[in-house]
């Protein structure tokens, strides 16, 4: 799944991401594109069993790839 959160005011990007995270199954991949890095989400992702990778994009936005891990 892919979510483009650019141009949205906080906390909307985070809230859309949270909603998408809830719908993920183990092994699913979610790609989000944000104007800003979701700092507060990073804290929780590891605890809740997601891995993530952050890439900078040419337009100054960030692409974050989140994968739901087993267990």
């Amino acid at each position: 799944m892919r979510l483009d959160n650019r141009g949205l005011q906080p906390p909307e990007p985070m809230q859309r991401t949270l909603k998408a995270l809830e719908e993920m199954n183990i092994g699913d991949k979610l790609t989000i594109i944000n104007d800003r890095k979701p700092m507060f989400l990073f804290e929780e992702l590891e605890q809740k069993g997601y891995s993530y990778e952050v890439n900078s994009r040419e337009d100054g936005a960030f692409e974050i790839i989140i994968i739901k891990k087993e267990g």
């Binding site: 906080p10 906390p11 985070m14 809230q15 859309r16 949270l18 909603k19 507060f40 989400l41």
Partner: peptide, 12 residues
């Protein structure tokens, strides 16, 4: 309105 949902990860 901005900080409470960010800090508690609340939506819906």
């Amino acid at each position: 309105y901005k900080m409470a949902p960010m800090f508690s990860l609340a939506h819906g």
